[in-house]
Computed example of a mutant assay.
Amino acid sequence: MVAKGLNEEIKKKNSEKRFRIILENANDLITIINERSEYEYLNETAHLKILGYNREELMSKPALEFVHPDDREKAVIELKKAFEIGETSVELRLKSKSGSYVWVDAKSKSFIDQDGKRKLLGIARDITDNKKIENALKESEEKYKNLFKSIPDGIVTTTMDGKFLSANQAYLNMLGYSLDELKNMNFQLITPEKWREVESEAIKSFMPEGYGTFEKEYIRKDGSIFPISLTAWLIKDELGNPIKMAAFVEDITERKKAEQKLRDSEVKYRNIIENTMEGYFEVDLKGNFTYFNEALCEMSGYTREESQGTSFSK
Results as ranks from 00 to 15, higher is better:
116 G>A: 02
113 D>G: 03
90 V>N: 08
80 K>T: 12
103 W>Q: 08
54 N>H: 03
44 E>Q: 10
43 N>F: 08
94 L>I: 14
72 R>W: 00
78 E>D: 11
98 S>V: 07
79 L>E: 05
70 D>E: 15
69 P>N: 05
61 K>T: 09
112 I>Y: 05
50 I>F: 01
80 K>W: 03
95 K>H: 04
70 D>M: 05
53 Y>T: 02
106 A>Y: 05
113 D>K: 00
41 Y>L: 09
39 Y>H: 15
54 N>D: 14
43 N>Y: 08
43 N>A: 10
112 I>G: 03
66 F>P: 11
57 E>F: 06
56 E>K: 07
117 K>N: 02
75 A>Q: 04
42 L>Q: 12
69 P>V: 06
120 L>M: 15
114 Q>G: 07
100 S>E: 14
47 H>F: 13
85 I>E: 15
102 V>F: 00
121 L>S: 06
88 T>Q: 10
91 E>K: 08
82 A>I: 02
64 L>V: 15
67 V>L: 10
117 K>L: 06
51 L>I: 02
123 I>T: 10
59 M>Q: 05
72 R>F: 03
120 L>W: 07
68 H>V: 07
77 I>G: 00
124 A>G: 09
124 A>H: 06
82 A>L: 01
57 E>S: 02
44 E>M: 01
46 A>I: 01
106 A>W: 07
79 L>N: 11
98 S>N: 15
54 N>F: 06
115 D>G: 06
93 R>C: 04
121 L>Y: 13
78 E>V: 12
124 A>T: 08
57 E>C: 05
123 I>F: 00
79 L>S: 06
40 E>Q: 15
119 K>I: 01
118 R>Y: 00
77 I>M: 04
123 I>P: 00
53 Y>H: 02
53 Y>W: 09
125 R>W: 07
96 S>R: 15
80 K>D: 14
38 E>Y: 11
41 Y>K: 13
70 D>S: 14
97 K>Y: 07
78 E>S: 12
62 P>F: 00
41 Y>F: 14
65 E>L: 14
58 L>P: 10
90 V>P: 03
120 L>T: 07
96 S>Q: 12
51 L>D: 08
90 V>A: 04
114 Q>E: 09
88 T>F: 06
109 K>W: 02
51 L>G: 12
69 P>W: 09
78 E>A: 10
74 K>W: 05
125 R>P: 02
77 I>Y: 04
47 H>W: 01
55 R>L: 12
117 K>V: 05
75 A>S: 13
93 R>S: 03
42 L>G: 04
39 Y>G: 10
45 T>V: 06
98 S>F: 01
60 S>D: 11
113 D>S: 04
48 L>G: 08
39 Y>T: 13
39 Y>S: 10
56 E>G: 03
43 N>E: 09
94 L>G: 03
86 G>D: 12
125 R>Y: 10
50 I>H: 08
104 V>P: 06
48 L>R: 15
55 R>N: 11
110 S>I: 02
98 S>M: 09
75 A>T: 07
97 K>F: 08
91 E>M: 08
40 E>K: 15
65 E>R: 11
118 R>E: 13
74 K>R: 13
55 R>W: 08
